[in-house]
Each structure stands twice: as structure tokens, then as C-alpha cells.
Computed example of a mutant assay.
Amino acid sequence: MNRTILLIEDNEQNRYLATFLLEQRGHRVVAAVDGAAGIAAAATLQPDLILLDIQLPRMDGYAVARALRAIESLRATPIIAVTSYAMVGDREKSLAAGCTGYIEKPINPETFISEIERIAFAAPPAP
């Protein structure tokens, strides 16, 4: 199924790779390069899924996730943290901020799409 996916990622190479992989699978990808632009895009776009980098300039991904969850129409939208933060507790911090799931960077191009689909579309949406 083709879905609209919002990718909030400041690193150009990471945006390129994720977009390439998702578009190869038939998804439509809209990118935002920082948290404020991502929140605005999400409110307008109403995407099927949000992929969120945690280490963003000016507003970190945790704050972005909380802001997205405060928007009524986005409360059930899956948000997956895609981040290089891989220390003990980082996954839990992402989930506590409102993310549905967590994928560590660097992403594995061979499993990235299946991980996203497993996290975002196989489980019930977040409350």
C-alpha cells in the first residue's frame, strides 16, 4: 500500500537514502529539515507516518514528538524515531516523548522498510 510519509531529518545524505528506499517501495515522501518545519508540514499534510530524527537543530526530536502528539489530528499517526542515539534509555526516552517506535542509525537498507512496516502498520496506533 502506498502511503504518504513525512521525513523530518536535517542530514541531506540520510534524507536521500531514506527517501530513495521509501520511494522504491511506492511511498510518497515529503521532507522537512527541522522540527518547526516538520510540525507545520505534519499539520497540513496529515501523513500516514512520520519518521523523526532526534538530533535536530534548534528543537530536538523529543520536543517535536511531544508537539506532534499535542495536535489532535496527529495523535494516532505513527511516529518512528530514526536516530543515532543508541545508548541505554534512548529508546525509552523516544517512546515516552510520543514515538511509536525506534530505529537506530545507521539504517540497514535491506531491513529499513520492513522495520518501518512492522512498527508503524502491524501494531495498533499509539493512543
Rank of each mutant, 00 (worst) to 15 (best):
L17T: 14
L17Y: 14
L17Q: 14
L17D: 12
T19Q: 15
F20H: 13
F20R: 13
L22T: 08
E23W: 05
Q24K: 09
Q24C: 03
R25I: 00
R28S: 08
V30A: 07
V30P: 08
V30L: 12
A31I: 12
A32C: 01
A32M: 02
V33Q: 06
V33I: 06
D34V: 02
D34K: 03
D34S: 01
G35Q: 03
A36Q: 11
A36G: 02
A37I: 07
G38D: 03
G38I: 03
I39H: 01
I39T: 05
A40K: 11
A41Q: 10
A41C: 08
A42M: 10
A42I: 10
A43C: 12
T44Q: 08
T44E: 12
L45E: 06
P47E: 08
P47Y: 08
L49C: 08
I50P: 05
L51P: 01
L52Q: 02
D53F: 03
I54D: 02
R58S: 01
R58Q: 02
R58N: 00
R58H: 05
M59V: 14
D60K: 05
D60E: 07
D60M: 04
G61I: 02
G61M: 00
G61A: 03
Y62I: 01
A63W: 02
A63G: 03
A63T: 06
A63E: 04
A63M: 04
V64F: 03
V64W: 00
A65T: 04
R66E: 15
R66K: 15
R66S: 14
A67E: 14
L68K: 06
L68P: 04
R69N: 14
I71S: 04
E72V: 08
E72S: 13
E72P: 09
E72M: 07
S73A: 14
S73W: 02
L74M: 13
L74H: 09
R75Q: 15
R75L: 09
A76T: 11
A76D: 07
T77A: 14
T77S: 12
P78C: 02
I79P: 08
I79F: 07
I79N: 10
I80T: 04
A81H: 07
V82N: 00
T83C: 00
T83D: 00
T83H: 00
S84V: 13
S84L: 10
S84A: 15
Y85M: 12
Y85P: 00
Y85E: 11
M87I: 06
V88R: 15
V88C: 06
G89A: 11
R91M: 13
R91E: 15
E92K: 08
E92D: 14
S94F: 00
S94N: 01
S94V: 06
L95S: 08
A96R: 06
A96K: 09
